[in-house]
Design a protein around this nucleic acid. Structure first.
Lengths: 210, 210
DNA sequence: GTGGACATGTTGACTTTGTCAACATGCGCG
DNA sequence: CGCGCATGTTGACAAAGTCAACATGTCCAC
């Protein structure tokens, strides 16, 4: 009953409208920012009425959560690709992932903003979004654990270290995407410097303070 | 003509409505999030009509930019206080500032989100907001330069280092505020670990890789 | 002083947008 | 074959931002 719903939907009036809505909304976000996504405009672009989306999403918020989740999925795939692509040392793996993370944000600024924005916020209970975000984070934890095993990094809680790394790349991505960083003539350099600094700070060695 | 406008306004119908609007909007944001700020509700809370704000702000966006700028001001003051309060070593100064930064965000989540949110975004040309943000950043640059002079830190471009540090604290603050970090039983510990890691990564010492 | 100019505030109205209810339609199954 | 359900449409409404027209208080020039 449920497993063939997708089948039916695909061969229905419009085709898989649900997927089409998510795709089109993402496209609109890329073109004109999240504010340009309007139920009416969205429907028009798909040759469908304004209220059609309500057969697939409870409200606009849920639609946007879906788009955000898809964004996390795309990001995760991209990081996975770059990671598989690079059978280098553990340091390089982590660094590559971090840099690619920021690059993704720069290439999809509005989408990235949505992923961490208030639309998705408060919707944490949403399983789809929660899973998508978690999957991304676990990927980071894995790489960090591998790095730890190779001995180049502190033996602290890998999840805590992952949070630190995530904070750094997410912070940099946010500031860049929001145009807060201005004097950045060399964005790539700044990205590298950020990942390098954080990784250096994680290196295993006797701590002095605290 | 302009310098006495404030004078006049203060003794006018309502008193300094402009300032009252900014304060009340900030209060509403703290209470119910940015979405709860409505021109109508705002006016009601001040015993003023819905359109009254338009005599002081071009549109709702400009009002919110004002609130955001005020937020940067409060944050700057707070960091300044904490910094003056702590005549410790340069490391401690930077660390304290970073930790206080995150704490501010946690105490004023909605306001913090607004400061870096899309309302303020694209309004970068706005002199008020630009100045408020810059002032905050320059403060960070100053502390980092002092740290550099004391010899504990790399002699790289202080602004670049400041961006790295800013990214880390802003990223952590954002993730915490948005509830993305879940398994954080020990938030304070995570904050300390983040500042420590970044500062360690900035320590002056021969680099190995890259 | 007094009248006009200007800043400030109000009210009514319009527009956009999200959303729902009522209705229409097409597909698949008994 | 016809019923039922998923899907889509249309009309309508409410919330909210915003503007134009109007009202009013203050201050300056005369």
């Amino acid at each position: 009953m449920f497993q063939d719903m997708t089948e039916r939907a695909r061969a229905y009036h419009h085709g898989d409208l649900r997927a089409a809505l998510l795709d089109e909304a993402a496209a609109m976000i890329a073109e004109g920012g999240a504010a340009s996504v309007t139920m009416r405009a969205l429907g028009q672009r798909l040759g469908v009425s304004r209220a059609a989306a309500y057969r697939h999403f409870a409200d606009k918020g849920e639609l946007l959560v879906g788009v955000a989740a898809a964004g996390f999925g795309r990001l995760r795939d991209r990081l996975r690709t770059v990671d598989a692509d690079a059978p280098r040392s553990s340091v390089e793996r982590v660094r590559r992932m971090g840099e690619e993370y920021v690059r993704f944000a720069l290439e999809n600024p509005a989408h990235y903003r949505l992923m961490y924005g208030k639309e998705a916020l408060g919707r944490q209970e949403h399983p789809e979004l929660r899973e998508a975000g978690s999957a991304l984070f676990e990927q980071l934890v894995d790489v960090i654990q591998a790095y730890q095993r190779s001995g180049g990094i502190k033996r602290e809680d890998p999840r805590a270290l992952a949070y630190v790394a995530w904070s750094a790349v997410h912070g940099l991505a946010s500031l860049l995407v929001d145009g807060q960083i201005q004097g950045a003539d060399d964005v790539d350099g700044l990205i590298r410097q950020t990942t390098r600094t954080v990784l250096d700070g994680m290196r295993a060695r006797p701590r002095r303070g605290a």
